[in-house]
Amino acid sequence: MSRRPSTALELAYARTEAITREQARNFYYGIRLLPPAKRSALCAVYALARRIDDIGDGDAGGDPGTEAKLAALGRVRESVRRAREQDPDASDAVLVAVTDAARRYPIPLGAFDELVDGVEADVRMDDVPGESAPYATFDDMVGYCRQVAGSVGRLCLGIFGSRPDPRAPGFADALGIALQQTNILRDIREDLQNGRIYLPTEELARFDVDLRLDEHGNLVDKTGGLAELIRFSAARAREWYADGLRLVPLLDRRSAACATAMAGIYRQLLDDIAADPPSVYHQRRSLSGRQKIGVAVKALAGRAPGGAGA
């Protein structure tokens, strides 16, 4: 039987691990492959990232409105800044764990600022009716993805560590961006229901897509243009995965397994969506628990998505 946490720091880490176990439906399959110290540190990072996301989505105590969300995000930004300069609020288990993790590993805490920037963009989007996408081009969308997901990739890299290579942060960034592109394709319907559009205006026009919902809340695609756009976007996202997975050979075995498992779950989801784009018109696609375990087992064996060795 494992020993119960007793110190304030142990309790803080226990809290962030519980948050991750309960809420990281995909990431936890990879995180659990890490050795205990790195696993605890990554759970702390995830818990703070989740707090930021939940504020943006209105899941942190209801939906208080745009100004209240922006104020709450500002408080998180300030709390991270203070934690970098002095001891965090002892009553905030998440910040206590993150601050300790940053003392143990070279975690770029400034990346949380980028994550807050991206979530602030989401919140401001809520004030604009979903008549048009706020991102005119794919490059614009990538900028957003870099804020909300590339930042997380770089935070993870601080915990993983890597062989000396100046390209490593760029690979971690690309992997996060690939995962976010998958999220965008998976969540087109749900995002539109919430008044958010992430697909670039330029590409919606190129594929003659008029993003809208029918009376049942399902996506409408009378011409097939949306399905074509999804397949096109998925093929492009695979290129980002290929670039990002160049990080894997630079990592130790357990960190490589973690990164490969997380990427593998999302890459499999991407392939499933590309094989049947209309499936996202009426539901939120996901892999089964058995499928996720299968990906994690392959990752631990050193098998990267697409069959490449890790």
Rank of each mutant, 00 (worst) to 15 (best):
V76E: 07
D92F: 11
A68R: 04
V142H: 00
G65E: 03
M141C: 13
P277K: 08
I197T: 04
R25V: 01
E114S: 07
G30H: 03
A257P: 05
A111Q: 12
R15I: 01
Y266T: 11
T223F: 00
A205Q: 13
L300D: 11
M141G: 00
E78S: 13
A60Y: 11
E190K: 06
L270H: 01
G153N: 09
T66I: 14
A296E: 06
A136L: 12
S162L: 08
L251K: 09
A71W: 01
I52G: 14
V80G: 06
E131W: 13
G176Y: 08
K222G: 14
A174S: 13
A60S: 14
V123H: 03
N218V: 03
R50Y: 02
R196H: 03
R81W: 09
G61T: 08
R32N: 10
H216Q: 10
L247N: 07
C258N: 03
I159K: 04
L179Y: 14
L287F: 09
L185D: 02
Q283C: 01
A168H: 05
S286M: 02
A257S: 13
G195W: 09
A97F: 04
G130V: 13
M262D: 02
G58A: 02
L229P: 06
P277H: 08
R3S: 13
R154E: 11
I184N: 12
D117S: 07
L300T: 10
P278I: 09
L95H: 04
F160E: 10
P277L: 09
V94K: 00
G130M: 12
I52H: 15
E131A: 14
V116F: 06
I184V: 14
E239P: 03
Q23H: 14
I293F: 10
A168W: 13
Q193T: 06
A263C: 07
S279R: 04
T99K: 00
Q147A: 09
P106S: 03
S255A: 15
L9F: 10
L204D: 15
K38P: 05
D276V: 02
R84K: 09
Q23S: 13
R284F: 02
L270Y: 04
K298A: 15
G56F: 11
M125T: 12
C145M: 10
A72D: 05
A227G: 15
L9W: 06
G217V: 14
A261N: 04
R186T: 14
D53Q: 06
L287N: 10
A242G: 03
G264Y: 03
P36G: 06
A242F: 04
N194L: 09
A296D: 06
E78M: 10
R212V: 12
L70M: 12
D243M: 03
I197W: 01
P35F: 01
S40T: 08
D165L: 01
T7D: 00
S6E: 14
G143E: 11
A90K: 00
R238I: 08
P36R: 05
L192R: 10
Y13H: 05
